[in-house]
Amino acid sequence: MVDILNLTFEELEKFLVHELGEKKFRARQIWQWLWNKYVRDFDQMTNVSKQTRALLKERAHITWPEMVKTQVSQDGTTKFLLRLADGALIETVLIPGSQGRLTQCLSCQVGCAMGCTFCATGTLGFERNMTMSEILGQVLVAREYLNDVAERPILRNLVFMGMGEPLLNLNEVMRSLQTLNSDFGLLFSPRRITVSTCGVNPEGLRELGESGLAFLAVSLHAPTQELRAQIMPKAARWELGDFIDALRNYPLKTRERITFEYLLLGDVNDSLEHAKQLVRLLAQTKGKLNLIVYNPSGDESDPYKAPTEERILAFEKYLWSKNITAIIRKSKGADIKAACGQLKAAEKTEAEGAE
C-alpha cells in the first residue's frame, strides 16, 4: 500500500499514470483534495470517478498523525503530542503572534541525535527520521484543529525548529519544502518558512541555500568553539570558524538575512564578555539575532537556570551598541512544557510509571 501523502506531485502523477492507468489531470484533482481540502477518505473526492476511488482504496492509504494530547498555555501557545503510524511520538506547537496569526513549529525527526545539553529532545535520543507525510501531517492536524477554533486564527508561518535536526533528514525536509510551495496545495511561500540548523552538514546547508525554498535560522547558542563544544558537543564537530565562513557565503535573496538563535543560559553564556565575543563572531555575516531566554524545566536535574533580567538587558544593550540587530524572544508556553521535547518526555515518564 502506498502512503499517498508521502508522494510529491510528480510522484503522484507517475503513480496514477503508470500504476493505475489514469490520466495526468487526475493528479491535480487528488492533490487538491489531499493538501487543500484535507480529506482523509478517498470516497470524499467527489470529482474523482468511483472506479478511480476504488483503485486508490486498493493501492493506497491516507494516514494522518493521531492526536494524543493537546495543551493550551495561558499565553495562547498550543502544543500537540502526536502519534505516528508506528507508534512513535512527536510534538508540534502553534505559537501566537500579532493580529491573530500563528507560527507552527514542526518536527522532522523522532527524537534527535545532536544531544544538546539544554534540550529536552536531546535527552530522549534519536529514534528515526520522519517522512514527508509525517512532517506535513503536522500541518494538516493543526489546520483541522484551527477550523474548530471560534476565532479562526491564521496559520501564517512555519518553522522547522521542533524535534530533530533538519539537515540530518535533508531528503524528506526538501521534499516537504517543495510540497509546501505548491501553488494548489498548502500554499506556503518560502518567505513564510524557516529551517533551523545547528550546523552539521556542509553539503546540506549548500543545497538548502541553493534551493531558495526557505529562510535559514542557525542555532548558535555560544560565541566560541570551546563553549559550544561544552553545551552542543555534536554540533561543535563542525568547527565554529568554518561554520561561520560557510554562512558568510550562504546565498541570500535581496533583503534576506540569516536568523541567529542564541539561548541565554544563566551564568553560562550570558555575560558581557560573551556578548563581545558574539559581536566579533557575527561581524561579517548578514544576519539578525534572536535572544531566547531559557525556560527551566523545573526538574531538579536541570543543569541550567534562566538568566537574570539585568544580564539579559545588558547583553542586548551591548549588541545594539555594536549595530547587531538583537531581539529578545521570551519563551512561550512555559506552563504547558512547550519547550521542544518536554511534553513527550513527560508522557514517557507517565507511561513508565504506569507499568
Score class of each variant (00 low, 15 high):
residue 308 T to M: 09
residue 197 T to D: 04
residue 258 I to A: 08
residue 230 Q to H: 12
residue 294 Y to Q: 01
residue 247 L to N: 11
residue 273 E to G: 07
residue 191 R to S: 13
residue 252 L to I: 08
residue 240 L to A: 02
residue 234 K to A: 14
residue 184 F to W: 15
residue 189 S to G: 09
residue 244 I to D: 02
residue 274 H to A: 12
residue 297 S to K: 13
residue 180 L to S: 01
residue 304 Y to Q: 06
residue 279 V to Y: 03
residue 301 S to N: 13
residue 189 S to L: 07
residue 243 F to D: 00
residue 235 A to R: 02
residue 232 M to P: 03
residue 289 L to E: 11
residue 178 Q to F: 03
residue 191 R to V: 11
residue 188 F to E: 00
residue 280 R to P: 01
residue 194 T to E: 10
residue 187 L to V: 11
residue 305 K to F: 08
residue 205 L to V: 11
residue 243 F to H: 09
residue 303 P to W: 03
residue 266 G to S: 12
residue 175 R to E: 04
residue 225 Q to Y: 05
residue 189 S to D: 14
residue 289 L to S: 05
residue 192 R to I: 02
residue 200 V to H: 12
residue 221 H to D: 13
residue 292 I to V: 12
residue 216 L to A: 12
residue 296 P to F: 01
residue 299 D to S: 13
residue 239 E to V: 11
residue 232 M to T: 12
residue 250 Y to G: 10
residue 169 N to K: 01
residue 206 R to C: 12
residue 302 D to K: 10
residue 198 C to W: 01
residue 195 V to F: 09
residue 230 Q to P: 01
residue 181 N to Y: 06
residue 240 L to G: 01
residue 285 T to S: 11
residue 227 L to Q: 10
residue 213 L to G: 00
residue 279 V to G: 00
residue 205 L to W: 06
residue 279 V to H: 10
residue 191 R to P: 06
residue 282 L to M: 02
residue 170 L to M: 13
residue 271 S to A: 10
residue 273 E to D: 13
residue 231 I to H: 09
residue 222 A to N: 03
residue 258 I to Y: 04
residue 301 S to Q: 15
residue 193 I to G: 00
residue 228 R to A: 05
residue 301 S to C: 07
residue 208 L to E: 02
residue 239 E to Q: 14
residue 288 K to C: 12
residue 169 N to D: 01
residue 245 D to N: 15
residue 207 E to M: 11
residue 180 L to A: 05
residue 263 L to T: 08
residue 239 E to S: 05
residue 189 S to N: 12
residue 200 V to K: 11
residue 172 E to F: 03
residue 306 A to K: 14
residue 170 L to T: 04
residue 179 T to P: 00
residue 264 L to C: 09
residue 266 G to C: 01
residue 181 N to H: 13
residue 194 T to S: 15
residue 263 L to N: 03
residue 265 L to K: 03
residue 286 K to R: 15
residue 193 I to R: 08
residue 298 G to L: 05
residue 276 K to L: 01
residue 221 H to M: 11
residue 246 A to R: 15
residue 169 N to F: 00
residue 271 S to N: 09
residue 296 P to I: 02
residue 214 A to C: 10
residue 174 M to R: 01
residue 236 A to R: 04
residue 205 L to E: 08
residue 278 L to Y: 03
residue 293 V to D: 07
residue 249 N to E: 15
residue 283 A to K: 15
residue 264 L to D: 05
residue 232 M to I: 13
